[in-house]
Amino acid sequence: MTEPLLAIRDLSVDYRIERGRLQALRHVNIDVPKGSIVGVVGESGCGKSTLISSIIRLLPHNASISNGQINFEGANLLDLSENEMRSIRGRRISVVYQDPMTSLNPVLSIEQQMRHIQYRDTTRRSAKLEKSLAMLESVGIADSRKRITQFPHEYSGGMLQRVSIAMALQAKPSLLIADEPTTALDATLEVQIIHLLKDIQAQFGCTILFISHHLGVIAELCDYVVVMYAGEVVEKGTVRDVFHRPAHPYTTKLLQCDPAGIQIKTRILPVIPGEIPDLVNLSGGCIFRSRCHLAESACETEIPPRREVAPGHAANCHRLPI
């Protein structure tokens, strides 16, 4: 197998907070093969946002990367200088954020914002405009010559998300990180954006790291899926393997909880009782044990190792056969 485009190795990130050291990510390993769409799924507090900020090295000041590597196109991003990193952000790796209403500047027109992000190019202003127009058209914005002069508030949510995708793709990055890009949108628009991302992937051949808490969207869009819980990767594999034969109890329960999967009317819906553990005082053992119905004594004391259940499909659970 060829070298993956992005390989996160044993990454651990801590936050210094008043109460001590909050271990937001612990020994995370993720491979993103070139040309694929990899989904990261997990609920609030699982470390999805910390993961993105680590990749583009925009962590808050109280965070520190205590361990690991982020290998991207042959270099470890954590070793690069701030200047080298600047040449990667937006050009080799770009991000589409969750809420386009807040990620775009409300007082600048779309044209100005799309021109500003081409600040590295020495081409003429008119060439930059043409490039912006072509990008808008490729994400399905009709009448782009008129719409580009408008301001964010004149766009609807779905259209604005298309604009942010166009801006992210403008420099033809090799990795596109999409941070819950459909969460702020209505269901019928969500489907449109998923299809757009699929088309774009085919058209530009870029690799997408897709972060979401929505299982259905991941199943529909991605090739591979990484399931995270409380700062750890608990399961990963191809979408088909993980969704059809989940190996980790958390994945199994998460799939059962999704109301979209329950076809027969019921008054009592399945839930995962309990809450995410406190990441400040970790005591060792399996991170999911307090909410796991299968927990046994080994889960209390030993961190479960990664076990392969099928080629390319692995989960961290003591109950899996070695």
Binding site: A187, T188, E190, V191, I194, H214, L215, G216, V217, I218, A219, E220, V239, R240, F243, H244, L255, D258, A260, G261
Partner: peptide, 13 residues
């Protein structure tokens, strides 16, 4: 359209 808009967590569906 609303019914079919919510993607199902089954990749083969």
């Amino acid at each position: 359209a609303l019914l079919s808009a919510s993607p199902s967590p089954d990749p083969d569906m």
